[in-house]
C-alpha cells in the first residue's frame, strides 16, 4: 500500500504544481496586452490542462483538450488576430471594481459549496457511486466496448453527443453565414496567382 500512497502523494504534488502554473498563466493573461502573447499563453494553458487531465486519469478529456483547446482554438484565435489587431488597449482602472466584486461573490459561493462537497478522490462520494459507477459495471455486458467513455458518449448518452455535433455544425454554419465561404477571396487569390504567373 505504501507504493499507492507514494503514488498518491506525488500525484498531489504534481497536480498542485500544474494548477499553480495555470494560476500564474491566468494572472499573466489578465495583465498582458499583446494579443499574440495572450493567445499563445492560452494555448499553453490548454496544454497544461491536458497534462493535468491525464494526471487525474481523464485521458479522453486530455486528448480532446490538447487537440481542440490547444490546437483548434489557437489556430482560430490566431486567424482572428490577423484580421483585427495585435494589441489590446489598457483597461480603465475604475472599470475593474465591478468585475472584481462579481468574481469574489461567485468565488465565495463556490467555496461555501466546497465545504459540503465530498473530499477530492473519495471513491464513496455520491458522484462516484451513482450513475458513473453503474456505467463501469454494465458497460461491457451491454455494449462490448472496452473504453467506457466511448460507450457512454456514443451510446448511453448518445443524444448529448448528437446535440454536441449539432453545436459544431452550427458553429461552422454561423461562421460561414457571418464571413462568407471564403470563396470571394478565393476568386481574388486565383486572379492574383494568374497575374503572378504571367508577369514574371
Amino acid at each position: 500500500m505504501t507504493g499507492d500512497m507514494m503514488g498518491e502523494a506525488s500525484t498531489s504534488i504534481i497536480s498542485a504544481l500544474l494548477l499553480s502554473i495555470l494560476f500564474v498563466m491566468g494572472v499573466a493573461i489578465a495583465h498582458l496586452r499583446n494579443l499574440f502573447a495572450i493567445v499563445m499563453l492560452s494555448g499553453i494553458y490548454s496544454l497544461v490542462c491536458a497534462a493535468w487531465y491525464i494526471l487525474v486519469d481523464a485521458v479522453d478529456v486530455g486528448f480532446t483538450e490538447a487537440a481542440v483547446g490547444a490546437g483548434m482554438s489557437t489556430a482560430v484565435l490566431l486567424g482572428a488576430i490577423l484580421l483585427t489587431s495585435r494589441n489590446a488597449k489598457p483597461e480603465r482602472r475604475f472599470a475593474r471594481l465591478g468585475p472584481l466584486a462579481v468574481c469574489i461573490a461567485a468565488g465565495a459561493m463556490l467555496i461555501y459549496a466546497t465545504s459540503d462537497l465530498p473530499a477530492a478522490g473519495d471513491p464513496a462520494s455520491p458522484a462516484n457511486t451513482g450513475v458513473g459507477l453503474t456505467y463501469l459495471q454494465i458497460n461491457w455486458a451491454d455494449t462490448g466496448v472496452p473504453n467506457v467513455v466511448t460507450s457512454v458518449l456514443a451510446s448511453y448518452r448518445g443524444f448529448d453527443t448528437l446535440g454536441e455535433t449539432l453545436v459544431v455544425f452550427i458553429a461552422g454554419l454561423a461562421v460561414v453565414l457571418l464571413l462568407g465561404f471564403g470563396e470571394r477571396s478565393l476568386a481574388e487569390t486565383l486572379r492574383k496567382l494568374k497575374k503572378e504567373d504571367k508577369v514574371p
Binding site: 453527443t161 465561404f181 471564403g182
Partner: peptide, 25 residues
C-alpha cells in the same frame, strides 16, 4: 455515429478555417 461526428467536426472546422482565412487574400 462516430463517423458522423468525424465528418461533422472535420467539415465544420475546415469551413471555419476557410471563412476566417478567406477574409485576408
Amino acid at each position: 455515429v462516430e463517423i458522423g461526428v468525424l465528418f461533422a467536426v472535420a467539415g465544420a472546422m475546415v469551413s471555419i478555417f476557410y471563412a476566417l482565412a478567406g477574409r485576408v487574400a
